[in-house]
């Protein structure tokens, strides 16, 4: 297991107009690991996740202070183009939102906008990505049919394949299993464990058992602050902060 720092956040603060959503977040996320972000609703964990691919700035009135580095490149520098950044930092959302086009076109969407035109190369990328997302065997015979006809669990894996097709280094997941049934959730968690060999994964989850199952590191957020950040086994067995203990033992949340 690699132990290099992939993402580093220093004194990150995010505001929505006058409301401060994040307070001086300092965090080091390790390469080829799964890092889970937990905490009650509105604690800032999703805001933090969305600041890693600069998606927050799409919302009018958002401002960010401090810095996030990926491979020591400062993301909030003036010369960083967020469009290029998002090519390297993929994201999976809570609702598996497939585009109203075929399964093939969904997966090929990213490569196509990044300039891949050759059909043979696209075919190869689509197959590879669907295989990596454990979806190939289920859809290989109807790859040209509309993606909207798929089940929720398949859709979430299609969204994964669509992200993988862009070949990002980091994958952000914002409660990816909250709309899924238990079997689809199990499949998704299995997939996350497979993918961490090649990607750095940051996952926001409401489900503490899920965080404990899939992650190597866990950060606990509360009221916009990072209360505790540690190895997952440490944090769940031996929380250092009283508030972390209260949350993971279900006293609030």
């Amino acid at each position: 297991m690699a132990n290099d720092v992939k993402i580093k956040s220093t004194d990150l603060k995010v505001f929505y107009h006058d409301f401060q959503a994040l307070y001086e977040i300092n965090m080091e996320i390790k390469e080829n690991n799964v890092t889970a972000l937990i905490g009650p609703s509105g604690c800032g964990k999703s805001t933090f996740l969305r600041s890693i691919n600069r998606l927050n700035e799409l919302i009018e009135g958002t401002s960010t202070k401090g810095q996030i580095y990926i491979d020591e490149i400062p993301l909030y520098d003036k010369d960083i183009d967020p469009v290029n950044l998002r090519k390297n930092v993929g994201m999976v959302f809570q609702q598996p939102s497939v585009f109203p086009m075929s399964i093939y076109d969904n997966v090929a969407y990213g490569p196509r906008i990044h300039g891949v035109k050759d059909k043979a190369i696209l075919d190869e990328i689509v197959e590879k990505s669907l295989k990596a997302a454990n979806l190939w065997n289920e859809v290989k015979d109807r790859i040209k049919s509309p993606a909207t006809g798929m089940s929720g669990g398949q859709r979430q894996r299609l969204v994964m394949a669509r992200v993988l097709a862009v070949e990002p280094q980091v994958i952000l997941m914002d409660e990816p299993a909250s709309a899924l049934d238990p079997i689809s959730t199990a499949k998704l968690e299995e997939l996350i464990s497979e993918l961490k060999n090649s990607y750095t994964i940051v996952i926001v989850t409401h489900n503490m058992q899920q965080a404990a199952r899939v992650s190597d590191y866990t950060g606990f957020f509360l009221n916009g602050a990072l209360v505790e950040f540690n190895r997952t086994d440490e944090l769940f067995v031996n929380p250092r902060d009283k508030r972390t203990e209260d949350y993971i033992t279900g006293r609030f949340g």
Binding site: L55, L58, R86, N88, G90, Q95, S97, Y109, V163, V166
Partner: peptide, 26 residues
Amino acid sequence: PHEYRENSLALGASKWQTISKITIPS
């Protein structure tokens, strides 16, 4: 749906690519 735009942008599409390839066709 707003999610279409978010997903497209998160895949590294520019705003215009998102509008021309996702929003207008939908």
